[in-house]
Nucleic acid binder design. Structure first.
Length: 318
DNA sequence: ACCCAGGACTGAT
DNA sequence: ATCAGTCATGGG
């Protein structure tokens, strides 16, 4: 960071919030696949954006410190969910040894409430991409279409800006087949065919319906947006990793268990804050190489008339 | 070379 | 209603 950096200007507001009783950990929170534009600098501080404001974030003792133009306590509190009753949330979790292991792996992992439009774009771009590639795409979109706030610091382009782009220029940002989706989505949002502001006022099921009218947004992506932008902790996105961990740990690896069964299992098993549980499981299964126990050897199919009774969803013992 | 990645969409049964 | 094929691109 140099002295010219707008983030470190003396007049940039600084806020310091107590994390007592909350326990937020920036490392696991910002690298858990919900946000894609945070970068950690050498001194352990994080550069990124909160509600379209560039800022610098770090933790110091029991305090969370943020510096950036236009930053207020309210904005930071909302973004990091410091107003949420985390103790109550965790108390609502089921007595589940796997979820306990996942929580123990990253106790300070917290859900963010990010800006809906950028979150929508990030997850339209997420399909069949690895997290590092989504970060790369986010960076390319900023550099190609955003406003230059400072050299090397570009805002994320709003919907009307992307709606004026061309699909070819979007493809240059390594978007592949997602370029068309993002282009159509930008026009749908810019024209208010779908209102991201109105979605915030709707019940979760109706909000999900509206989101799924957007090109490139299916059930999974819609749930990610509900969970990571709109703070709907009951949204439970099931990607390939979560599908894997649910099937392996709660259905004995039974490949015949259908996706819809996993959906309804998650709804009833993990409680009203199941989206939170989902993020612990996702982060754990991806980052801990020995998270999953070895698969049992495949049992050869007997030629018995299998009255296939799928497992009732009782967790295996870890 | 091969398989996989925080899937969605289309068209055929 | 379910189901396979297809869609680009880069990491390991």
């Amino acid at each position: 960071m140099t002295f010219e950096d707008p983030i470190s200007q003396p007049e940039s507001p600084q806020v310091s919030l107590s994390l007592f009783g909350h326990g937020l950990d920036l490392e696991s929170t910002l690298s858990s696949g919900q946000a894609f534009s945070w970068k950690r600098s050498d001194d352990g501080r994080w550069r990124g954006w909160i509600d379209r404001r560039p800022c610098l974030v770090w933790s110091q003792g029991d305090a969370l410190r943020v510096v950036g133009s236009g930053i207020t306590r309210e904005v930071v509190t909302h973004y990091f969910g410091l107003d949420l009753p985390v103790r109550e949330i965790f108390a609502s979790f089921p007595n589940d040894p796997w979820l306990e292991k996942a929580r123990a792996f990253a106790p300070g992992l917290r859900l963010l409430r990010q800006e809906p439009w950028e979150t929508l774009c990030n997850f339209i771009c997420s399909s069949l991409k690895q997290i590092v590639q989504i970060e790369q795409i986010n960076h390319e979109l900023r550099r190609a279409f955003g406003d230059k706030v400072w050299p090397g610091l570009h805002s994320f382009p709003d919907a009307s800006r992307l709606a004026l782009a061309t699909e070819t220029k979007l493809r240059a940002c390594r978007l592949g087949f997602r370029a068309r989706h993002l282009f159509v989505a930008a026009r749908q949002v810019a024209s208010s065919e779908v209102s991201l502001d109105r979605i915030a006022t709707l019940p979760t099921d109706e909000a999900r319906e509206q989101l799924m009218r957007i090109q490139g947004v299916g059930e999974k992506v819609a749930n990610c947006i509900l969970l990571f932008a709109y703070g709907r902790n009951e949204a439970f996105p099931i990607d390939v990793w979560v599908e894997r961990v649910l099937r392996r740990l709660y259905f004995h690896g039974n490949q015949r268990v259908k996706h819809e069964r996993l959906v309804s299992f998650a709804e009833t098993h993990f409680g009203p804050y199941r989206g939170y549980a989902q993020q612990f499981l996702f982060h754990w299964i991806r980052k801990d190489p020995k998270a999953l126990p070895p698969e049992k050897p495949a049992v050869p199919r007997t030629r018995k008339k299998t009255t296939t009774k799928p497992d009732a969803g009782t967790p295996e013992e870890p």
